[in-house]
């Protein structure tokens, strides 16, 4: 696997976790009194895991910049080249914006002990923007107007859906894990409430992912046959299969496990959530790969160029050269 693919995948995964922690805190974790006993432990876990995810996200974002600068300039990325990329390219501008958003999240994490709600909301919003703004570093940004806005919107919604679902799923795994066993009694009621809330958030996230995913597939894959015939389409197909597998597990969780969690315990739900996280991780690896490949809708059929030399009366040498596309 190429370094840039690994860096992209790790970065996207880390950004999803950073945004998901905010989604979990505000949309999934119960705010009523039943969660008070374990709230400090959850807050601590969210803070530490977000800090680690953010550190990984910022580090990979920096490596991503160096790799892109090397690729753009076809040379070692000197300070001069980095400055040129940052100042004069779309990626450079997006890089500065996202790095600033990352720093904003870091500052909010540092101040989190003060428990000021507006500050927390600002941190969660910055984390969500940190994830969503990745759309401006992907294929959608190179689309031609007027459909460019649609491409970017679909991509941004897709990222937001991933943050809501996959990003909030990992903290839910933590809570469900704590609720297992004899020592988890204090965790069971809030874990059950969180699982119910997550089911509702999950429906919104899945619908967002589904609609934006269909739009992205139409934009980037181009045709149904390209889903199977092209390398890009095959990976999109693999992503769809993994996504459907997660949906099936989520439906089973929502219909069979969540309503009975207080009676049967969270063990099976915890196991299923771990499987969903693993499948989500595989999807993110595929997304990292797709970002480095030419979308099948961008491909052109090769053309042929004929040349004659010396192009003068008398003997001539003929040559034919395939090129893509017809120009």
């Amino acid at each position: 696997m190429e370094v840039i693919v690994a860096v992209r995948s790790i970065h996207i995964g880390a950004a999803v976790l950073v945004a998901g922690a905010g989604a979990f805190e505000f949309l999934v974790w119960p705010r009523n009194g039943q969660a008070d006993a374990v709230r400090p432990a959850v807050s601590r876990w969210l803070r530490v895991s977000t800090a680690w995810a953010l550190a990984v996200a910022l580090l990979t974002w920096a490596v991503w910049l160096v790799l892109i600068a090397a690729s753009m300039s076809a040379a070692s990325p000197s300070l001069e080249v980095l400055e040129k990329v940052l100042a004069q390219t779309n990626f450079g501008h997006v890089w500065i914006l996202r790095f600033s958003l990352g720093l904003l999240v870091a500052i909010e994490l540092g101040l989190r002990g003060q428990r000021k709600l507006p500050l927390r909301l600002l941190g969660a919003a910055a984390a969500a923007l940190f994830l969503v703004s990745l759309a401006w570093a992907g294929h959608a940004v190179a689309a031609q107007p007027p459909s460019r806005a649609l491409h970017l919107g679909a991509d941004a919604c897709h990222l937001l859906g991933a943050g809501l679902w996959l990003g909030a799923l990992l903290p839910l795994c933590f809570v469900l894990g704590r609720a297992r066993g004899a020592t988890g009694q204090a965790w069971l009621a809030p874990a059950a409430a969180a699982a119910r809330n997550f089911s509702t958030v999950g429906v919104v996230a899945v619908l967002t992912l589904l609609i934006s995913g269909v739009a992205n597939t139409v934009f980037q894959v181009g045709s149904f046959s390209a889903l199977l015939d092209t390398a890009y389409g095959q990976r999109v197909s693999a992503k769809i299969v993994l996504f459907l597998a997660i949906i099936l597990i989520a439906i089973y969780n929502r219909v069979r496990l969540v309503p009975r969690i207080e009676a049967t315990g969270p063990a099976v739900l915890y196991r299923n959530a771990i499987v969903e996280v693993a499948l989500g991780g595989a999807i993110i690896v595929l997304v990292g790969m797709l970002g480095n490949m030419a979308p099948s809708s961008h491909r052109h059929e090769p053309g042929m160029q004929h040349t004659l030399s010396p192009w003068a009366p008398g003997p001539n040498a003929a040559s034919a050269r395939m090129h893509s596309p017809m120009a």
């Binding site: 190429e2 840039i4 294929h139 190179a142 390398a231 990976r235 790969m289 480095n292 490949m293 030419a294 979308p295 961008h298 491909r299 052109h300 090129h323 893509s324 596309p325 120009a327």
Partner: peptide
Amino acid sequence: VPAQAHAFLD
């Protein structure tokens, strides 16, 4: 799969 080109000469 290797990295592939994106902006083709139209």
